[in-house]
């Protein structure tokens, strides 16, 4: 009886893991707010980058403000490989990263160990 319960529990747990982590989900996306010929968007860093995708207008100077709430070492750094940005994020502090919006396209960014990903879309 005990073994049967464990077996059922394990099957349910595995089913939940597959559903929770592997099923396709719509990424939250947000557009930057414009002010005085500048655009700005805020990304909360807490177990991931929220919102995951930020849409920026091409040619308008932009800054992405990271609000790091997560103390995990994984989020110490934020790296934009295509834009050559590599910054250290302070915990519980807002940190602005200037984004070069001269070229349209999708730019992935990630944490220092490349485990968590976010995206900037310039169009």
């Amino acid at each position: 009886m005990e073994k049967l319960l464990v077996l059922i529990g394990a099957a349910l747990l595995i089913g939940f893991i597959v559903w929770w982590f592997f099923s396709k989900r719509d990424n939250q996306s947000t557009e930057a707010t414009m002010s005085d010929d500048k655009q700005q968007a805020e990304v909360t860093v807490n177990g991931g980058y929220v919102p995951n995708t930020v849409v920026l207008k091409q040619g308008v100077p932009a800054s992405l403000v990271f609000d790091r709430k997560d103390p995990s070492g994984c989020f110490n750094e934020v790296v934009f490989p295509d834009l050559g940005i590599h910054e250290t994020l302070p915990v519980n502090e807002k940190f602005a990263v200037e984004i070069d919006t001269s070229k349209a396209g999708e730019y992935q960014y990630s944490c220092g160990m490349n485990m968590f990903h976010g995206k900037v879309v310039i169009k």
């Binding site: 929770w20 982590f21 177990g47 991931g48 997560d70 103390p71 994984c74 485990m115 968590f116």
Partner: peptide
């Protein structure tokens, strides 16, 4: 604690990592 904190936050975002 930081491991647990991140693991939970990541879980809510449908993410999982070494933490």
């Amino acid at each position: 604690w930081p491991f647990i904190h991140t693991a939970w936050a990541a879980f809510r975002n449908h993410h999982a990592n070494m933490d």
